[in-house]
Computed example of a mutant assay.
Amino acid sequence: MGAALGAVVIASLYFVKVLFLAVVIVAVGIGVTELVRSFADRGINIPLVPTLVGMTAMIGGAYWGGTPWLLGSFAMTVLVLMIWRMLRGTEDYVRDVTATILVMVYPSLLAGFAALLLADPGDQGRRGADMVLIFIATTVASDIGGYFAGISLGKHKMSAVISPKKTWEGFAGSALACMAVGGWLVAWRLEEDVWKGVLIGAVVVVFATLGDLIESAIKRDLGVKDMSSVLPGHGGMMDRLDSLVVALIPVWVLLTLLV
C-alpha cells in the first residue's frame, strides 16, 4: 500500500503537476471526511459539503493565487461555516464551530502549503516538484526509521498516555533517517549544501512526531483506534496525513529561506 501511494505521488508530481494537486485534494478530502464523521459519532456537527468545498478552494487557490488566496479562502470559508451553523440554532453552537475551525486548519489549511511549494516556478517548474518530493520523502523517512528502530530497540516510552507505542529509541531512528534522506535529496535534487537537507530533516522529525501525537490525542478523545479503514494496513487517510500536514509548515519556511 505504501509503495502504491508513493508511485501515485511521484508519477503525478513529475508528469502532470495539476494531477498531483488533484491527488492532494482527494487525499485531504478523505481525511476531512473521516474527521467529520468521527466528530459526528460524538454528537459534534460539522457540515461536510461546504467544508470540502472550502478545502478545495484553499488548496487550489494556494496553487494558482499564492499565499493571499490560501489565507483569504480560509477566512471566507470559516465565516460561511459560522453563518451556516448559526442558521441551525444556538444550542452547542460554540462547540460545533470550534470543531469546524479545527478541521479547516487541520488538515485543510496546513495542506495548502504543499500547493505553495508545488507552485514554485524555478527551473521551469521542476524545483517545485523537487521540493514537494523532499518534503514527502523526509517525512515518510521519519515513519519508517521510527518504526524499525522502535520495534527492534524501543524500550523507553515517549508518552504512554497519548501514544503508548512511541519510544525515544524510535524517535532516534526517525531522526537519523530524516537527516540522511533530507541531506541526500537536497544535494541531489536541488544541488544545495548537504547541511541544509540535514537541518530540514532534523526539523521534520520533531514536527512529524508532534503531528502523530496530535492525531493520537484526537483519536483518544474521540474513542477511536483508526480514523477509518480506507487504507489496508494503515488505517484511515488521516493516519497517513497526520505527520505530513504538521511537518509541512516548517519545511515550507526552511525551503523558502534556504533555497
Rank of each mutant, 00 (worst) to 15 (best):
Q124P: 01
A115G: 12
A27F: 13
M1G: 02
L176N: 04
M55A: 14
I144P: 07
P68E: 14
D41L: 08
T138D: 05
I134V: 09
I249H: 00
L185S: 11
G146V: 04
L117I: 08
S12Q: 00
G233M: 12
F207M: 06
D221T: 05
V245Y: 02
D143E: 07
M227N: 15
G122H: 10
V206Y: 00
V245Q: 04
A75L: 14
F148C: 05
R189H: 12
T139Y: 03
K166E: 10
I200P: 07
L244W: 04
G72P: 12
V16W: 11
L255C: 04
T77S: 15
L52M: 07
S243D: 07
M238F: 08
I151S: 09
D212F: 00
V23L: 11
L87A: 07
V198I: 15
R220K: 13
L199H: 06
V198Y: 08
A57M: 15
G61S: 11
R95M: 12
Y93K: 03
V32L: 11
M86W: 11
A57W: 13
W188G: 06
V140M: 10
W188T: 15
V245D: 02
L109M: 10
G61E: 13
L87K: 12
L110A: 09
V103S: 06
A160I: 04
G6M: 05
V18H: 11
Y93S: 12
P232T: 13
V23Y: 06
D96Q: 09
A4P: 01
E169R: 02
V80F: 14
A27P: 03
P107C: 11
K17P: 09
Y93D: 13
R42Q: 07
A172T: 10
V18I: 13
G61D: 12
A40Y: 03
F148Q: 11
A40R: 14
I59M: 15
S174F: 04
G89F: 09
V132A: 10
R95L: 12
E169Q: 07
V80E: 00
L79A: 15
P164D: 02
L118S: 09
L71E: 09
W168Q: 03
G125R: 10
M55K: 01
D239W: 05
L109P: 14
L199I: 14
P232V: 14
R127A: 15
G201Q: 03
I10P: 01
F15R: 06
W168T: 02
K196I: 14
S174H: 05
V94D: 09
F135H: 07
L244D: 05
M237Q: 08
R37Y: 08
M76K: 00
G125N: 11
W64H: 15
G112E: 10
A175F: 14
A160H: 01
P232D: 09
L222I: 02
L254W: 06
V132W: 05
V97M: 13
I249G: 01
V105S: 10
S174I: 05
V23H: 04
G112V: 08
M76C: 13
M86H: 07
R37W: 06
D221K: 12
L71C: 08
E215S: 03
S73V: 06
T138R: 05
V32P: 09
M55V: 10
V251E: 01
A175K: 00
L70W: 11
I59Y: 09
E169T: 02
K225F: 05
V105H: 12
A129Q: 13
A247F: 01
V80P: 00
F207C: 02
L255G: 05
A208H: 00
A4V: 14
